[in-house]
Design a protein around this nucleic acid. Structure first.
Length: 225
DNA sequence: GACCAGGCACATC
DNA sequence: GATGTGCATGGT
């Protein structure tokens, strides 16, 4: 039997984070398509490296529409996204998404955006290379659906703060957040972004973290994040 | 030079 | 079903 959590805990952590960091203005991208490309490129990769890859794509003028990337040869695409790492797999994954979009929606993100959330999720998960987190990032940040994104930071931070059990999988952790927070797109958008900000900034500064807004530095010092 | 970063698919047991 | 492994760059 799972431990029941206090409904207010998640919201109060959110408020602390927001007060401390303020809005993160996510997702950092100019277009919906750029969000999707970024979501695939950032898989297990620092955003700094993804930025370099995105810059290359923009410079080559292929990020303005799915059609343009779709026309690139895989080798050429790999070369452009090289700084983001795993460039061969990621080129394949981008291609897979574009093949799906072309085949099922005539290459139109607008058409895709009319689908209901559950259908959209199933379709995205059907693309080889799009797993739960990438899928939910796309749902949340590209299509503004109220879906909570769980990532490595979320797991680490909330496990160590005893809010999630260590053995919970992606969907179970997601459910804890979604069952205990209002289903609100803006809230989920900001919350996930704040968690990433906290993870990035605090993680490396252990064990002498002075800025953790969660106020549990003793636990933090034991390598919480 | 080791370790990490906004995962995922696939092989093997 | 659980666990292990390959994929790869660039910063600390």
């Amino acid at each position: 039997m799972r431990k029941r959590i206090n409904r207010n805990v998640l919201l109060s952590i959110y408020k602390k984070l927001y007060k401390f960091y303020s809005s993160q203005k996510w997702w950092p991208a100019d277009t919906r398509f750029e969000v999707i490309v970024g979501a695939i490129l950032t898989q297990n990769t620092s955003w700094k490296n993804v930025e370099k890859a995105i810059k290359n794509l923009k410079k080559a003028n292929v990020l303005s529409s799915p059609y343009r990337i779709g026309r690139l040869k895989k080798g050429e695409l790999s070369r452009l996204i090289k700084p983001a790492g795993y460039y061969n797999v990621k080129a394949e994954r981008l291609k897979n998404f574009l093949t799906f979009l072309t085949a099922e929606y005539s290459g139109s993100l607008n058409k895709l955006s009319h689908q209901k959330t559950e259908k959209l999720r199933q379709e995205l998960l059907g693309v080889n290379g799009i797993g739960p987190e990438t899928c939910d990032s796309i749902l949340l940040y590209a299509f503004k659906r109220p879906v909570f994104v769980v990532d490595a930071y979320t797991k680490r931070i909330f496990e160590r703060h005893k809010i999630c059990n260590k053995d919970l999988d992606y969907h179970q952790i997601q459910k804890i957040f979604m069952d205990n927070l209002p289903r609100n797109y803006k809230l989920y958008n900001e919350y996930h972004a704040l968690i990433v900000r906290l993870g990035k900034e605090v993680c490396r500064k252990l064990p002498n973290c002075k800025i953790c807004p969660l106020g549990k530095r003793k636990v933090l010092a034991n390598r919480i994040l």
